[in-house]
Simulated assay, not measured.
Amino acid sequence: MADVNNKVAENVEGSFYVDDQCIACQRCIDEAPENFKMNENFSHSYVYKQPENDTEKKHCEYAMDSCPAEAIGNDG
């Protein structure tokens, strides 16, 4: 389960976030490319844009559910 106290620095403010347990598998980017990106050195992903509609929110939820490291959280 993602830990809100261990968010990676690149996350934008909002309910969805990636924490430091990310293993850079890119599954979240495959599920929600409008909301997740990989950082510059490819060590972890982060939320670069919070979902702005129901479709994007659903894709972020899919990304969270499919994360093998359980590194995506939702405080919303």
Rank of each mutant, 00 (worst) to 15 (best):
M1S: 14
Y17I: 03
S43Q: 13
S43A: 13
Y48E: 10
Y48P: 03
V47C: 08
N11L: 10
F36D: 03
A32D: 03
K37P: 01
T55N: 14
S66W: 11
Y46W: 08
D20R: 12
D3A: 11
C28S: 03
V47Y: 00
M38V: 09
E61H: 05
K57Y: 13
A69M: 09
Y17D: 02
I72T: 02
A69W: 03
Y48K: 05
S15L: 06
R27E: 12
N11K: 06
Y46D: 01
A2S: 14
D19I: 02
N35T: 02
P68N: 07
C25W: 06
D65N: 15
P51E: 04
P33C: 07
A63N: 06
N41R: 12
Y48M: 10
E61K: 09
A69N: 08
D54Y: 09
D75C: 07
K58W: 11
S43C: 10
A2C: 11
A71S: 15
E34G: 10
Q50S: 05
D20I: 06
S15G: 15
Y48S: 10
N41M: 12
K57Q: 09
Y62G: 00
A71V: 04
G73Y: 00
N5Y: 13
A71E: 08
Y46I: 05
D3R: 11
A32K: 01
D65G: 10
Q21H: 13
C22W: 00
N39W: 08
G73A: 05
F42E: 14
I29V: 15
C22I: 02
G76Q: 12
A2N: 08
H44K: 08
N39Y: 11
Y17S: 06
Y62T: 10
S45L: 04
N41P: 00
S15R: 12
N41G: 00
D3T: 09
N53I: 06
N5R: 14
I72L: 14
S66K: 14
D20W: 04
E13P: 00
Y17A: 03
C28E: 00
M1K: 14
D19L: 07
K49R: 15
C28H: 02
G73D: 00
R27Q: 14
K57G: 09
A71P: 04
N53V: 03
C67I: 07
K57I: 01
K58Y: 13
I29C: 07
H44T: 08
D30L: 13
N74V: 03
D30N: 10
S66V: 02
C67L: 09
Y17V: 04
F42C: 09
E56D: 09
A2T: 05
C28V: 05
V47P: 04
V12A: 11
I23M: 15
I23R: 11
V8M: 05
E13R: 07
V47D: 00
E61Y: 04
A2L: 08
I72K: 01
M38C: 02
E13I: 04
E34R: 10
E31W: 09
E52F: 01
T55Y: 13
C22M: 06
A24N: 11
P33W: 05
V47H: 00
S15M: 06
A24T: 07
N74Y: 15
C60P: 07
Q50F: 04
D65I: 00
H44Q: 09
M64V: 01
A69Q: 06
A71Q: 01
M38I: 14
E52S: 14
V4T: 14
S15D: 15
D65F: 11
A32R: 02
P33Y: 06
P51N: 06
D54G: 15
